[in-house]
């Protein structure tokens, strides 16, 4: 992963008080992600499994600004708490969500290791969304319906994932750019 965008945002590691602050930050961001996740769950969807995945924007932001580890925390908390809030904890919906999140985090961990200039938020958004959907489809296939229809559903769902992934990448980039501007001002 490349260095955080600005020096100010880099978490200093030597003082004993700072980790607590990081915990607070993770908690706050996770809460935001949960809110987005729950909000989205209330939206109707034309095809089962087709969701904009706005909560992923939070994961992207945390990844770019603070690194993979906090991003993983935020995502794990989001899946867990959303599951509890929506009452889907350990239900198929929850397992799909968890499988997708795990796949997305794994893909982001790999992407963060990319040599050269690495990925911009745009590429990260795409990779995360595709991995998320891919993970969900695999979980659906393995646990629920090993049916060829899942393979047919994969085409539209992955296309949607690519579109929404790019969108969340753009949103993450706009937010990061704005933050940068505010910080420089």
């Amino acid at each position: 992963m490349k260095a955080p965008a600005t020096g100010q945002a880099a978490p200093p590691r030597d003082t004993p008080l700072r980790p607590e602050r990081e915990d607070v930050r993770v908690a706050a961001l996770a809460a935001l992600a949960v809110a987005l996740h729950v909000l989205e769950a209330a939206l109707p969807s034309p095809v089962p499994g087709m969701k904009p995945g706005l909560a992923n924007v939070v994961t992207l932001l945390v990844l770019v600004r603070f690194g993979w580890r906090p991003a993983a925390w935020v995502t794990a908390l989001r899946v867990l708490v959303s599951g509890l809030v929506l009452g889907t904890f350990l239900s198929p919906t929850f397992l799909l969500s968890a499988g997708g999140a795990a796949a997305a985090l794994a893909a982001l961990a790999l992407a963060a290791r990319c040599p050269g200039r690495g990925f911009s938020p745009l590429g990260l958004g795409l990779v995360a969304a595709m991995a998320h959907m891919g993970g969900q489809l695999l979980v659906a296939w393995a646990l629920f319906v090993p049916h060829p229809a899942v393979a047919l559903l994969a085409a539209p769902l992955m296309t949607a994932a690519a579109a929404f992934g790019t969108l969340s990448g753009i949103i993450a980039w706009r937010i990061l750019a704005q933050e940068e501007a505010t910080e420089q001002a």
């Binding site: 965008a5 992407a111 990319c114 050269g116 200039r117 690495g118 990925f119 911009s120 745009l122 590429g123 795409l126 753009i170 980039w173 990061l176 750019a177 940068e180």
Partner: peptide, 10 residues
Amino acid sequence: MRLRPTPADL
């Protein structure tokens, strides 16, 4: 931060 796709993005 400018939106310039990196080679990895492409």
